[in-house]
Design a protein around this nucleic acid. Structure first.
Length: 747
DNA sequence: CCACTCATTTTTTTT
DNA sequence: AAATGAGTGG
């Protein structure tokens, strides 16, 4: 047995890793080595218990977690054993594992095995169409709200016909849900929730299928078990129903997806469903200082209905938490940037040591702007960073249409992109033609494209026929090309044939950005030359926000000292950072106002804060702001109730606790004027002048971001960091760090 | 049919 | 403040 497998584990971890057959529940506090236990357990099963990878399924919630596990397990398995033992494990997210299962078993289902996966935008637009088709008013019944109800039903494994009808709204939801499912089937598409619901119901309703998988999977392992919903829980029970070996790791205190149907009580349900299961508590924390842990515990201990835990660490007391109160949200951002800059210029920390966390994505904008202003490198996890961009979604829609011409959502998205003379009238005509022919718009288009005037649809379409046939011919070419050439060639042909480049790249800065995004997507396609279009599309649909983070093995690039990470509290789960800022500790934001009236929701806000706090290894900053601008007007708030739960001995307070009237007036004058604020943060390195600057006043320089400019002044601080003031022709005055800005001297 | 203007609206978190 | 959606003129 490789010593490394168990050597550096504490007794509880070791007990978990080497547990025998049966059911094991590992309650793992934050930073207690949960991932380590899971990966060692996998390696242990393969090397010591001789379980073939083929007989193991391990589920996670993000692709990133799956990837990290895979890499670490490969490192743990000694060389003589072939890597395929790891590759043959079913290792991935719930959604990816369900998709795999559904594609294999599609003959039992109303889908073809190359079904596409609709993301939330697609879902919403389909629901909207269903609502309109049923002549329901989409003002009183918002598509988003209906969507939420349908999603909740699916997470509870309810088909349309299972929906109880108590109110008029229930009835509306039921009708829309029914129609929506028909439309999905007609599009050969499933949505996120279907992946779980359909897979689970398939196993429940087809005992033969269930048995095949249950026999195959000798061991079932689950990460983040507290975030499972009913569908996922049932799925797991089906999968382990033969061998009855299930190993779950979770922490009730970190359950933060209630709104997605997750139920932390599944942890307790597990104990009662599997009487006599082994329960292992991991309480030693290897991440944070005791001060951070104590503060976090004071916050979480106010929740009821949980297994009490006593986290401890060998890492020492550590520094106190810092609580900062800013006058407004701009000052809040300035405080963060200011603090980080001070660390960086003193050389005591690198950018990747820091994370900035917030409750809502909207909060990221100000921070981003402040970061850019200060020339601090940052990376934004999630949000609309890439896959949500219009141009990316357009390209994906083209590709999906090639994969599956019946995909009406994608068809409607791109049929007029770029504009080609196809408008509402034409689309309606096309729709009814498809309806009459008992096929789909895509099929009609293809027919028009292939047979032209000979097509029975030609006359039907009147004077729209030529444009439709053109588009159909183009689509038909692509469909044929898909078989003959590589994914990247197909990609290029679509761009060329459709004239998409000219359409989005108007040579403005934004146009170039959009084009860059397309190129980035093209680069991603290279990874799927072997695997093909179907898998490319599936992975595009199932990427999560966290997946944009590099796995730990990918070190930050050589030149850069990494970047500050900006992310929501939700996206922060499972990660850790040396120094963590949590922003917006205000009533109404954290806890969020929508949770105010529901104790369960409030408890979840508390857990969310707890998750954020326990990400910090060494230093935790709790930041709030007395007012912030929201929808264009000021919103004032009280300090978050969570702040009051932390013992003041653990905290140093900075910033104005109460601002005097004069300060308020003053800041009004500073911030409320429209236009560019003159008081935006600017880094102020210590003014110890050293003679040798690389850039001298009067030099002309060029920067990648801003073009040409004139150096006004340059100084080097005691750490050898050179700060240059430049007047750029494009954007005017900027103060930049020479090491980051990469200025080229022109003359 | 399309591009532009004006009015209306923003539901926290995400696979 | 910004982004979407409806309505209008070309």
């Amino acid at each position: 047995m490789p010593e490394a497998l168990l050597d550096d584990l504490n007794p509880q971890q070791r007990r978990a890793v080497t547990a025998g057959d049966g059911q094991v529940l590992v309650l793992a506090g934050p930073g207690s080595g949960k991932t380590r236990v899971l990966t060692r357990r996998l390696a242990y099963l393969i090397t010591e218990r001789n379980i073939p990878g083929y007989g193991i399924i391990a589920v996670t919630f993000t692709n990133r977690a799956a990837r990290v596990m895979e890499e670490r397990v490969k490192d743990l398995i000694p060389n003589p054993l072939p890597e395929y033992q790891v590759d043959s494990i079913w290792l991935g997210t719930f959604h990816a594992m369900c998709a795999r299962l559904l594609r294999r078993e599609s003959n039992y289902l109303p889908y073809k095995s190359n079904f596409v996966i609709f993301d939330s935008d697609d879902q919403e637009s389909l629901i909207k169409r269903a609502i309109r088709e049923l002549n329901i008013d989409d003002k009183t019944h918002r598509p988003g709200a209906i969507h939420a109800s349908i999603s909740a039903a699916k997470n509870d494994l309810l088909l349309p016909e299972d929906m109880p009808v108590r109110t008029y709204r229930d009835e509306v939801v039921k009708r829309v849900y029914t129609r929506y499912q028909q439309m999905l089937a007609a599009n050969n598409a499933v949505d996120f929730d279907d992946l779980l619901m359909v897979a689970t119901r398939l196993l429940q309703e087809q005992p033969g299928v269930a048995e095949r998988y249950a026999r195959r999977f000798q061991h079932v392992l689950v990460d983040e078990f507290q975030d499972t919903n009913l569908a996922q829980y049932e799925l797991l029970k089906q999968l382990c129903s033969y061998h009855k070996n299930i190993f779950v790791v979770g922490d009730e205190d970190q359950s933060i997806y209630r709104w997605r149907g997750a139920d932390y009580r599944n942890v307790q349900r597990f104990e009662s469903d599997f009487k006599g299961c082994e329960v292992i508590l991991l309480e030693q924390n290897y991440r944070s200082t005791q001060n951070v842990l104590d503060a976090a515990r004071q916050v979480i201990d106010r929740n009821r209905n949980r297994t009490p835990k006593h986290l401890f660490t060998a890492r020492g007391t550590g520094g106190k938490l810092v609580q900062y109160t800013a006058v407004d949200d701009l000052a809040e951002a300035a405080y963060v940037v200011d603090t980080i800059t001070q660390y960086l210029s003193s050389g005591r920390a690198k950018a990747s040591d820091f994370a900035v966390m917030y409750r809502t994505n909207a909060q990221s904008r100000l921070i981003e702007e402040a970061m850019m202003h200060a020339r601090l490198p940052y990376r934004l996890v999630g949000a609309l960073r890439f896959y949500g961009r219009r141009e990316v979604k357009d390209m994906i829609a083209f590709l999906r249409l090639v994969e599956n011409p019946s995909d009406e959502v994608s068809l409607l998205r791109v049929i007029g992109v770029p504009p080609r003379g196809i408008g509402e009238k034409t689309i309606t005509a096309l729709q009814s033609a498809a309806f009459r022919a008992g096929s789909s718009m895509g099929e009609v288009l293809l027919d028009l494209g292939r047979r032209g005037e000979d097509s029975p649809h030609w006359a039907e379409m009147g004077r729209s026929a030529p444009v439709l046939a053109d588009f159909g011919a183009m689509l038909s070419d692509w469909v044929a090309l898909r078989e003959q050439t590589s994914l990247v060639n197909l990609f290029d042909r679509i761009i060329n044939d459709s004239g998409y480049e000219k359409y989005i790249n108007d040579q403005t800065e934004e146009g170039n950005d959009r084009w860059d995004n397309i190129q980035e997507l093209r680069r991603l396609a290279y990874d799927y030359l072997e695997k093909g279009l179907t898998e490319f599309l599936q992975n595009l649909a199932l990427v999560s926000d966290q997946d944009t983070l590099p796995a730990e093995s990918d070190q930050p690039s050589k030149a850069q000292q990494g970047a500050v990470t900006l992310l929501t509290l939700h996206a922060a789960k499972g990660l850790e950072f040396n120094q963590v800022f949590i922003l917006g500790l205000d009533e109404g934001l954290l806890p969020h106002s929508r949770s105010r009236d529901d104790p369960e929701e409030m408890a979840e806000e508390r857990r969310l804060f707890y998750v954020g706090m326990t990400r910090a290894k060494n230093q935790l900053y709790l930041v709030r702001s007395e007012r912030r601008s929201n929808y264009g007007s000021w919103e004032y708030s009280e300090p978050s109730r969570f702040l009051a739960d932390i013992d003041e001995n653990l905290v140093i307070s900075q910033g104005k606790r109460t601002s005097s009237r004069r300060e308020t007036l003053f800041s009004d004058m500073r911030w409320s004027t429209t236009g560019v604020s003159t008081t935006n943060y600017k880094p102020q390195p210590r003014k110890v002048e050293l003679p040798d600057t690389k850039y001298k006043p009067g030099m002309r320089v060029r920067s990648a971001a801003w073009g040409e400019g004139l150096v006004l002044e340059s100084k080097v601080d005691s750490d050898g960091e050179e700060t240059v003031d430049v007047h750029f022709e494009s954007v005017g005055f900027k103060r930049v760090l020479a090491s980051l800005a990469n200025l080229v001297i022109i003359q």
